[in-house]
Simulated assay, not measured.
Amino acid sequence: MRIGPLWSSWFGWKEFDVAVTAWTTNNSNEAANEFESMIRTLESVQHGNITRFFGWCREGNKCLLVHEFIRRGDLEYALFNSPQSLSWNDRVDVIIHICEALCYLQKRQILHRQVKASNILLDAVWDAEKGHLVTKAKLNDFRLAKELVCGDNNSSADSKCENLSFGVEPPEAVKDGKFSEESDVYAFGSVILQIVTGKRTADPVPNSSTFLLCNWVVEKGKNNCLGDAIDPKLGHLFRQDEAIALLNLGLECLQPDRNKRPSMLVIKKKVESLRLPHSLVS
């Protein structure tokens, strides 16, 4: 997949920028059916924390998807490449927003299957109550999204994705190519750890050939120094109890046994409790 150039388009009476995703597929009936299924999913999804879908075009094996354009870029850039670090409030807001998006999708029995930092876009919206711009996160890239069989809570979707993200994909997806609601929970847990620690899921470290963020955080916890895992770029502008609670929540989501992972509704209640008035950090 590649992201095409920025386009300025007219939709009704309003002109605004759009993002175009372009890629090629094979000409098989299976590919055509998958494309049609993806379009149906995109057209049915409407949520404030999911990028808006405007339209599509397909000619032969060439496909285009048109979405709203988010100027601030993605979470991966904000965490690992941006010269300006995300504030603690922004990080917690991102976690809450993506949690809400995933709850919405699971209520509609839709698996995203690509929940990762590069697929989370950051927008800036005006908050009239606060009197300034605030960060709003939106889940993007539904090319691999699948609908579950209605009424089957234990159903899963076969995956033929060849680009599994190391350190992000759940064990069951890597082993059997099966995705479930718990698989999106697993990926979300990985995102939580990245947001709190400021580290990639598989950062190279000195004198070590492999580094998995999950294992590193677990070791910090075993040594009673979980606070040392918090992103040092935050300085002192965060609440340590909140950060540690989120690290523990992320580890819960990353349980190897999918049946031991919390549901998105449970996760939502836990992260929303962090946004009580007394917990805000300026």
Rank of each mutant, 00 (worst) to 15 (best):
V205Y: 09
N119C: 04
A243M: 07
S44Y: 10
I70N: 00
V218D: 03
V281L: 01
L251E: 07
N140M: 14
H112N: 08
E172Y: 08
S208A: 15
D152G: 01
A117H: 03
N49G: 12
N207L: 13
R275M: 12
G60P: 11
P256S: 11
K269C: 04
E36K: 12
A19C: 10
V115R: 01
D231T: 06
D74G: 00
N223K: 15
C63N: 10
D241K: 14
Y77C: 03
V266D: 11
V217P: 05
P5E: 13
F54C: 04
V18I: 13
E181V: 06
S183V: 00
W88M: 07
K116G: 07
R113K: 05
P5K: 13
T24W: 08
P256R: 10
L105V: 09
R239T: 04
D241N: 13
S28P: 07
G167K: 07
R113F: 09
S273I: 04
E43A: 09
L276P: 00
L193C: 06
S273G: 03
A32K: 11
A31M: 05
N27G: 06
G151T: 01
P232V: 03
D74S: 06
C225I: 05
N140W: 13
I230P: 04
E172T: 03
R143V: 10
V149M: 10
G12W: 00
L212N: 06
R261G: 02
D158T: 09
S190D: 03
E162Q: 14
A202F: 09
Q84K: 15
I195G: 03
L247P: 09
A157E: 00
E15W: 06
V174H: 07
Q46A: 08
N29M: 13
G250F: 07
A117Q: 01
T51D: 02
L212F: 15
F142S: 07
C253Q: 08
A32H: 01
G131R: 05
V115Q: 00
L139I: 05
K116N: 05
V196T: 03
